[in-house]
Design a protein around this nucleic acid. Structure first.
Lengths: 196, 196
DNA sequence: TAGTTAATTAGACCATCATCAAATCAAGAG
DNA sequence: CTCTTGATTTGATGATGGTCTAATTAACTA
């Protein structure tokens, strides 16, 4: 589920360090031993061991042991594979599954709605829209409503039916024609740019 | 010079955090306000502001202010541009200019050479090669050398000319044919995979 | 003008992590 | 077996950075 996300994070974390990028730069050109890398990058051997361990954890570099000297090399296939995977999920979808798209609405509703009654009408437009969306779900669909009938339905949830009726129209949740009201069609909810 | 490197580091650092990746995930689908992001990601507003500031620093995210609410959106062109630049320099070259390819040799020579004399012959093959490369540079090029003459030249730098002569041949720095010696052609030093 | 809402800034707290010195390990060489 | 060499492990230290609370700013409203 969110494994995709944590792989992304690991990948970026692994490359988000100057020393490791320089190590990769060296290994991209040729194989090298730990001591060489330490001298080339002006770091102490334990430090390069530390970095190489992190890079090997992701499979970006491989080790060949020869006596007491360890030769390190880049694994270009792995680098390319990870890079490709990253780019494909970069712009979209990577995290879509891991978050609750209604979290904001839930939070707003918890503070303004109790059971079936609207405690108060939010003054903030964005929050008010959430409450209005909740309210319009409680009105009959595909059916013309005269003003008196509509007011009665709204008053089940809040006494100020006039204000709410006006807001519902103003925000586009209801349409008014020839002095009868009707629920508007829901706006499409498609993501603007689906995964490639 | 190394601006290329630091841009790479900044880019990876910016994406090396789960919260920021999730923000990008949301903004990839649609524009959102700070409060929305806070609710969606279950973070406090200051935290969201903190992350958005980092993303805006790199131009990955843009802001549109409308009253007291700030709307954030992804800048896909910038994302793509950076990603492309990263991939092109990822495998090669990014760091070539920033490091001293001879640092290891210099370090070795400092401990084994004093002026023009070899203090001792390294037992480690890799270090020994460095010293031999230094020594062969002090022999005449493109010219046949009888063994006695070669020994004399080597003895300017170290008394054990027999051992060094043997090592020079063994490591390929000298060739021996019909009992005369000659400097071998230098191996080409081209990087195996030049930048695309 | 006072009050409210959305956001930012300031500052503190805590975890992560890059770096190094010292100790340890493993593989030859004498 | 002992000594040397290249590398790793351990543990400490200092810096970076994600997250929060509290205080502040900016814009709108009554």
């Amino acid at each position: 589920m969110s494994d995709d996300l944590s792989l992304l994070v690991s990948f970026f974390k692994a490359l988000a360090d100057e020393s490791r990028l320089r190590i990769i730069g060296v290994l991209a050109a040729r194989e090298a031993t730990g001591g060489e890398l330490a001298a080339l990058l002006d770091l102490k051997p334990p430090t390069v061991t530390h970095h190489l361990a992190k890079l090997r954890e992701l499979g970006l570099v491989a080790r060949r042991v020869e006596g007491t000297t360890h030769h390190y090399r880049l694994v270009p296939e792995r680098v390319e594979a990870l890079a490709k995977q990253v780019l494909s999920s970069e712009t979209v979808a990577a995290t879509d599954a891991t978050l609750d798209h209604d979290a904001y609405a839930v939070k707003v509703l918890r503070s303004f709605i109790d059971g079936e009654t609207i405690l108060s009408i939010p003054t903030s437009r964005r929050k008010r829209d959430v409450v209005l969306a909740w309210l319009v779900e409680r009105l009959p669909e595909g059916q013309d409503l005269p003003e008196l009938e509509l007011n009665a339905l709204i008053q089940r949830h809040h006494p100020d039916s006039a204000a709410l009726r006006r807001e519902l129209v103003c925000s586009g949740f209801l349409t008014r024609e020839r002095s009868v009201y009707r629920r508007a069609a829901k706006p499409s909810d498609d993501p603007p740019q689906p995964a490639a």
